[in-house]
Design a binder for these strands. Structure first.
Lengths: 272, 272
DNA sequence: TTGCTCCTCACGTCACGTGAGGTGGC
DNA sequence: TTGCTCCTCACGTCACGTGAGGTGGC
């Protein structure tokens, strides 16, 4: 028989842990003195303690350890638990590798710039959107803005005329390509009941699991710079655009003050 | 201005998280309605939220994020924090790799044996020991037991004669080698004040960071099998003995019942 | 006798998730 | 008006670590 302290040393665990395992009925001492409460462990219990520690070291929760130790799982179930744990660990390692990469990148930029370079670019997801749109062609990147601006009044008029409420933020989408004119869509999100009519077409944008997003603050005259910055950032991060249309979401446009406008630029990415 | 829901969507976080960051003074809404408690966020706050999320994604605690965001750390300190995080992540990944290896080993043994092979072998550390000993030579492995047994009565007598109290468990140590006689030490731990005398020598065993340990239950006549099992296990695990003397710690030896004896076998390992 | 070990509460950890119960704005 | 969003508590999470305050055994 061992005291709790001896047994703890033998198993390489703390006394507190043994008390915890007792309280959880995971490893109950062979006897407990009814008067003093002193716990006594038998030599034969070392085996269970070792198994407990080994399973915990694999990353199982105490509840899982209990079911395994108490033989409540068959060989197949145990295989399943191990495979699940395998998958979880693999994912965990991959996550931490990503984190490590980002830490290293920060360290490299900090060496060069000696302060925290902070950009307002994040990677997020973009939802599927059902849109009522009017589209046009822009000859060049610089031409996109004027084209969009010319499309919205007509679109708004057509939607209002059709009695369709406009509640969500307007969304514009462009199909960027290296050469040739750019297809420009000026649009508003609409419900499933709305269909194409004279004055606007209804189409859907697919959901995108990963987009690089930059929040552009202020008037739209400098939005080209923001798109450029976003493209440069994607390149620096070693990511690639997926080729799906980019989106401009006009989150807030107080009509009296363009300097307070808020626009999200979203550039779909290929899976990493 | 955004409501908390809009701002949460924009930043890809939950409403609850924004309330939490408010409570922690990490990201306080630009204004809070004194009557309704409704929070309003400004577009310009998106930057801070993005930085917050990015730093949290690197694995920093919210408290660390706060000091970094509030510019309470200089470039050097920040470099230090990033390097620390780098080290932590590297260690974490190494740990998880080890876990993954062990999970895979379990899966392979379970394929073959279709049930949980549980051995009572663990890896633990062994402390430095100051020992009073008598030693002898054993011609072969089989001869070790008799030699040890012959040494202990004389050693006990010499220690008692010198007035030295015996409180801790007896420890035997052998220097295993492939050929030739085996040096056998029968010993008891003693305090720093005890020195070599007629009848026993005092020497110290170095601490060992990693030993493979097997708890042998019962009489010592089958202890050879336990040593064999321990050696086989070390081989299977792909570990190597360090060559330091192996230890037998006689944890419990009730004189009336050898079947309840408890002995720890410890085999020093090379660092992994 | 003096340490040393043992005991039982009970709080703290970390970053929120998840109700409960209620109010405000379109 | 009916949902939808917002609000404030407050408990739960997971496996213990860390006192506080007290008792038992050599």
């Amino acid at each position: 028989m061992f005291t709790i302290g001896e047994f703890a040393r033998l198993g390489g665990v703390s006394v507190r842990m043994l008390r915890h395992y007792d309280a959880q009925r995971l490893l109950v001492p062979a006897r407990t003195d009814p008067h003093s409460g002193y716990r006594s462990y038998e030599a034969a219990q070392v085996g269970r303690l070792n198994r407990l520690v080994a399973l915990k070291d694999l990353g199982f929760t105490l509840e899982q350890v209990r079911t395994i130790l108490d033989d409540e799982v068959g060989a197949d179930e145990l295989r399943g638990m191990l495979r699940l744990r395998h998958a979880e660990l693999t994912a965990q390692i991959a996550d931490d590798r990503g984190r490590l990469d980002r830490v290293e990148r920060r360290l490299r930029t900090i060496e060069k710039e000696s302060h925290m370079t902070q950009h307002d670019i994040t990677i997020t997801s973009a939802p599927a959107l059902r849109l009522a749109e009017r589209s046009g062609l822009a000859e060049s990147i610089e031409d996109v803005g004027p084209v969009v601006r010319s499309l919205y009044p007509q679109l708004a008029e057509a939607l209002v005329h059709a009695g369709i409420p406009l509640q969500d933020a307007a969304v514009a989408a462009y199909e960027l390509s290296d050469e040739g004119p750019i297809q420009v869509h000026a649009a508003f999100p609409v419900g499933d009941d709305v269909v194409s009519t004279d004055g606007f077409d209804v189409f859907t944008l697919s959901p995108v699991p990963e987009v690089a997003q930059l929040i552009h603050l202020g008037a739209l005259d400098t939005i080209g710079d923001s798109w450029q910055a976003l493209g440069a950032w994607i390149e620096r991060e070693g990511r690639s655009p997926s080729g799906e249309p980019v989106r401009e979401v006009y989150l807030d446009m107080p009509m009296d003050d363009p300097s307070r406008w808020v626009t999200a630029l979203q550039w779909p990415l290929q899976p990493d």
